[in-house]
């Protein structure tokens, strides 16, 4: 199998590896870099559990080759807040019961991170439209919508303070 050198920035840190050219980005993130917060659900780009940000854009890491991200800035769920200092989006998911089993959650948080950067004040229809990209089998989605609405409030309050 052909191998390639790859150099990317992952969550602000430089990562340099020699990998098989065919390695999926999801496997690279999870098994080469040990960032297991990104999950793989359907392996063909439907469920969105594997969604991460590449140069700020949400991508399905299960359908992307790692080598395609050469030189890119990658953000995964591990780049958001920590257990003792959750980001407003994470805090909102906690408050509004936006997760049950937690498996689709990393993908949900990443697509919503992208949405809130593009549009800090999305309305319910805009949240639903973006949420339609990903599958959740536990929540029925409503509490995820409420979570994102709550995140908008929290982030607005945060901006107000600054």
């Amino acid at each position: 199998m052909k191998e390639r050198d790859i150099q990317v920035t992952v969550n602000g840190r430089n990562a340099k590896k020699r990998i098989e050219a065919r390695m999926l980005l999801s496997d690279f993130i999870r098994h080469e870099l040990g960032l297991t917060g990104t999950h793989v659900g359907c392996e063909n780009g439907v469920c969105g559990a594997c969604t991460i940000l590449v140069d700020g854009t949400a991508v399905r890491s299960c359908c992307t080759l790692a080598v395609q991200t050469e030189g890119c800035h990658i953000e995964t769920i591990e780049s958001l807040g920590r257990v003792n200092k959750l980001s407003p989006l994470q805090q909102a998911f906690w408050e509004k019961h936006g997760l049950q089993c937690g498996f689709c959650t990393p993908g949900m948080l990443m697509i919503m991170t992208e949405l809130l950067r593009q549009n800090p004040n999305p309305d319910r229809a805009q949240i639903r439209e973006r949420l339609n990209d990903n599958l959740c089998r536990c929540t029925g989605y409503e509490d995820i919508i409420s979570s994102v609405e709550r995140a908008v409030e929290l982030m607005r309050a945060e901006r107000g303070v600054q």
Binding site: R30, T36, G37, I77, V83, W94, G102, T105
Partner: peptide, 13 residues
């Protein structure tokens, strides 16, 4: 929730 929200769940894979 906090562990799942931060990517710290421990799933089989």
């Amino acid at each position: 929730d906090p562990r799942f929200l931060t990517g710290n769940g421990r799933f089989i894979d």
